[in-house]
Design a protein around this nucleic acid. Structure first.
Lengths: 248, 248
DNA sequence: ATCGGAGATAATGTATACACAGAGTATTCT
DNA sequence: AGAATACTCTGTGTATACATTATCTCCGAT
């Protein structure tokens, strides 16, 4: 009931957007599949007007693609698109790290980042890593990335990073990941954690170029891991693979 | 009349979007000023529904900002925001140049770029440069940047560059520029032309790192020039200054 | 005189009705 | 029987009417 109250406080448009995004990311609609407004109305329970607004926003977000003759379809990403997007995000985050280092952040600003990393350490050090721990990790990792972006103190850059992270494989959807993938996921987590510590250190010491280089290398490594994962498994369940790489 | 026919072929939403963007970029509305739907309806001549769609798209584009209590306002950019955006665009274009060099483009792919640069040469070599020549230059320069982005063959990156270029100071709004600024604008044009030639050369020779570095340096120089221009003139007419830098 | 509250007004958010375009199917003609 | 055309039906694009919320003003009380 309280939940219902909370839902009522946000606009129908936002509710529709969240519901539709959830539907798309969870794989309820296949890439390339058309999403009709009527269908969206049934799913979300709101009228066509807010649904249309939500669809436009999801298109701008990159999850949907406008069909020339009208309407929208779920955007399909090639493997190359995904790998490029990861490198793209890494490049932007590298710029953010450089900005943070060059603009001179106080050690007080870095405190939240370090705390975030410590919390992650508490999760990934123990073995084997549980499904719940992995979920927590994904959330914490996302928080770290947000904090790093904000450290740049550059609204345009933060905005662009947000957009680059809006794609499914950059969203905290780790819960889709298969149990069997957990062990190797943990390896990636540990390496990523190391990278993050180096970045914080570089920023603290005002080494802009080094901070930037690390973030870019970090993304390239993540892309490489994803490519390997895609080679080993079938191409079928791309979404879990995307969730996996979101840990990077 | 034929124009009227052509207008009728595109949707009301697109027409509204174009009209409103023109209004904002031309300075018809001051930054921070609220834009009411009623006002937008009067300006565009279409109904509220397509107007709302256009407003949402312009928000995603970065020209408008949503007001928490409802509605939209023209987004205000600080000087730092603008400088950061230029460097951001340079970083993305640098990545595009590197992709182009590393993925191996044929010299046939580079032909349109070279032709574009030759056309620009024909415009800027003669002195003094006229207002018409400058307008032509801005259009050609925009084409060069689009061609370079496409050379990366990376849809996600192209998309992101498009968005980074959607802001006013990256749009071909050079016609606003004052006559008096033309001479120094020409200097920037010539330097930019040199940079572009180097980039094409680097891509042709598969030197990814060099191609990327040049584009980033190019953007940094453009940012520096803008900063100087803002110091010399008053802060008042930022739009002409933004037009000036769009030449970079 | 100033602050607070209540009411009115205007603007946004939402819903629905209508118009038009496109696709699919059925029927008719060759 | 096959193909072409016409008709229907589904779905998007647009307009407008309604509801809700926020802001501004005015009046009253302290």
């Amino acid at each position: 009931m309280a939940e219902r109250e909370a839902e009522r406080s946000v606009s129908q448009t936002v509710r529709a957007q969240l519901a539709l995004r959830e539907l798309i990311v969870s794989g309820g609609l296949r890439p390339g599949e058309r999403i009709s407004e009527l269908q969206a109305v049934e799913v979300t329970g709101v009228s066509r007007t807010p649904v249309r607004m939500a669809l436009v926003r999801l298109e701008e977000e990159g999850l949907l693609e406008a069909i020339p003759s009208g309407g929208f379809m779920v955007k399909a990403f090639s493997e190359r698109d995904i790998l490029d997007s990861i490198e793209l995000r890494g490049t932007l985050e590298g710029l953010a790290a450089r900005f943070a280092a060059e603009r001179g952040v106080s050690s007080r600003d870095l405190e939240p980042l370090k705390q975030c990393l410590d919390e992650i350490d508490g999760l990934v050090r123990r073995e084997p890593i549980s499904m719940e721990a992995f979920s927590s990790y994904v959330a914490l990792n996302a928080r770290f990335h947000v904090l790093l972006a904000e450290l740049s103190r550059s609204p345009p850059l933060i905005r662009q990073i947000d957009r680059a992270s809006a794609l499914p494989f950059a969203s905290p959807s780790g819960f889709v990941m298969a149990q069997s993938a957990l062990p190797e996921a943990r390896q990636i987590l540990l390496i990523g954690q190391d990278h993050h510590r180096v970045v914080v250190d570089a920023i603290e010491n005002r080494e802009g170029a080094r901070a930037e280089a690390i973030m870019r290398e970090h993304a390239r490594l993540a892309a490489r891991n994803l490519r390997l994962a895609l080679r080993n498994r079938t191409h079928l369940d791309l979404l879990p693979a995307m969730a996996l790489i979101s840990a990077g």
